[in-house]
């Protein structure tokens, strides 16, 4: 394929790095801090090279003190800076859950609107790399439960490149979840790609028979499923939520109103999940439009196992999406 001269080829990892680099260049108040972001180059190599370019003041290695450095990010944000705090994985973010929930999400409200917290926290999420039950979970749906923060789940290169700056411009705390399986994903992006909105879902594939609602890495499984279904005459519309809080229900309700069927694909566990929230909103907002019950494809409710075949069985898969939709269409 001939490449458009205005397009550049890069990975998701490089797209995130470019976003961080652009923010550091554009705004002196921006700095990155987290475990191994500097000398090591980031545990997923996202920040590789940034220490050399911006120095240790702005690319700040922290001790393994999630609560202190997340809290310090909150304090620094209140003190006039625009911190980007990196937490290695969502499982480690639980060590900072006190700061995220009890401080970042509440201080604006508790202070009667006096102190806002323009903080961005990035972290890796997701399973599929055989790193077992303490490094693989998808807890972004959990965080989406909390009023006072915003929860972003960039799936595409465009969003990996563009969501960060918009998040930094936001006056309130924004959590960005990067599925670690996406870091090596390669593709093309316009050389001048810039900020994107962080509050709207996108239709990634238009269709008329069924709506697949998903986010993050599951988007690509949904798109693959839609292609397989298309060969069998089923035209699936695929919606990438992009942001789990605030949830853009207008987009998926409009789609369900058109297709009359909905399947939600969510790498989180089923019980009490973001998929449950979406299903409830469809009941509230489009019940009489439905030709079939809403279906959900989630991770099996086990701590993530190490063995590859078990881990793959625990995660939502393209094949499951295909068979579920075929069953729905023929029932």
């Amino acid at each position: 394929m001939k490449e458009n001269p205005q397009m550049i080829r890069l990975t998701y990892r490089e797209a995130v790095r470019e976003a961080i680099r652009e923010a550091l260049r554009k705004d002196d108040r921006v700095f990155l801090m987290g475990e191994d972001v500097g000398r090591y180059g980031g545990c997923f190599a996202v920040s590789k090279g940034l220490l050399q370019e911006f120095g240790p003041e702005r690319i700040r290695d922290t001790p393994l003190s999630e609560s202190a450095f997340v809290g310090a990010g909150i304090g620094a944000a209140m003190g006039g800076m625009r911190p980007i705090v990196e937490i290695m994985t969502v499982n480690f973010s639980l060590l900072a859950a006190d700061q995220i929930l009890n401080n970042a999400a509440t201080i604006l409200h508790m202070s009667g609107g006096q102190f806002n917290i323009p903080l961005v926290i990035r972290m890796a999420t997701g399973g599929g790399r055989q790193v077992a039950a303490q490094h693989s979970h998808s807890l972004e749906g959990w965080y989406a439960h909390i009023p006072g923060i915003k929860v972003l789940t960039p799936a595409t290169l465009e969003d990996a490149r563009g969501m960060l700056w918009t998040a930094l411009e936001d006056p309130d705390p924004v959590l960005i979840f990067e599925n670690s399986n996406l870091y090596n994903m390669e593709g093309q992006l316009p050389a001048d790609a810039g900020p994107v909105d962080i509050d709207r879902a996108r239709v990634r594939r238009p269709g008329s028979d069924v709506t697949i609602i998903t986010y993050s890495a599951s988007l690509f499984k949904a798109l693959d499923a839609a292609e397989i279904l298309a060969r069998e005459g089923i035209d699936a519309e695929v919606i990438d939520l992009r942001t789990l809080r605030p949830l853009d229900q207008e987009t998926f309700l409009a789609s369900v109103t058109k297709t009359h069927r909905a399947v939600i694909v969510d790498e989180g566990w089923r019980s009490g999940s973001i998929s449950a929230e979406i299903a409830a909103r469809i009941m509230e907002g489009a019940f009489y439009e439905l030709d079939a019950p809403v279906e959900r494809i989630c991770s099996v409710e086990v701590p993530m196992p190490y063995a590859k075949h078990l881990e793959q069985a625990a995660l939502p898969q393209t094949e499951t999406i295909v068979t579920t939709i075929k069953r729905m269409m023929h029932s």
Partner: peptide, 17 residues
């Protein structure tokens, strides 16, 4: 104990600025 990290961050902002 939750206020201590906030204080550290406020002080970090001062130092950086």
């Amino acid at each position: 104990g939750g206020g201590l990290p906030l204080a550290v961050g406020l002080a970090l902002a001062d130092k950086m600025q």
